[in-house]
Nucleic acid binder design. Structure first.
Lengths: 106, 106
DNA sequence: TTCATAAATTACTATATGGTTATATAACTA
DNA sequence: TAGTTATATAACCATATAGTAATTTATGAA
């Protein structure tokens, strides 16, 4: 087992923090269907414009999404697919827990 | 692509929040070497006892760790290995980013 | 029962974070 | 240029969270 330094743990935690917010996950999940402008994300998620922009700049700082300007619009896209693998792992594990729950109490 | 409900996204976010704190990661990483008592974790991590206990109960609530009482001591152990896969994914991606950084600026 | 030790909990503080409103910036159009 | 639209940023508030000190609970030993 590799020994991780505190600094490394902080980096991992800092990155996972990006994925531990429902609205950011919703944005990412929406972007999974292809790149979207801020406007489109506002419509598709139902969140406020400033809110979306703030989340997007955070995600961009972490290189989780990329941005591309086209006239007045700025299009954002997924730049790091590994986030979905992470979500899948979490989902699978939750399913397993549900199953165990059902096995015992169902 | 599966459509995820807001509720599902909240569950995922809530679970990932458990992994987005350096101290909790440190605890989990320490437990990777085998089960440990609260005392041992206090010594190995350098954190306060109350702090460790609080993090452990959070992790236990999410079934990420399990607990076993043996006399005065309570031993905690990893109950969900998938967390390490998640950390590995994050690590790999960070390495990739570093590599890209080095390729461009190194 | 009394004492000692381990762990959990409570109460509190400081800080971080998400959301909102208002404003600023950037880019296109007339 | 002035006006319009899209996005970003700033300021602010409310809430959540990590850490700590003090206390309580649980267990074992004398």
């Amino acid at each position: 087992m590799k020994q991780l330094k505190d600094e490394a743990l902080e980096l991992i935690a800092y990155r996972l923090k990006m994925l531990s917010d429902p609205m950011r996950l919703k944005i990412l999940h929406t972007l999974q269907g292809g790149e979207k402008s801020v406007q489109q994300l506002v419509e598709l998620t139902g969140a406020g414009q400033a809110n979306i922009s703030k989340h997007l700049s955070q995600l961009a700082q972490h290189n989780i999404v990329g941005r591309r300007r086209k006239g007045l619009h700025v299009y954002y896209y997924i730049a790091d697919d590994s986030i979905f693998k992470i979500c899948d792992l979490v989902c699978k594990n939750m399913e397993k827990n549900m199953q165990r729950f059902n096995d015992v109490f169902g």
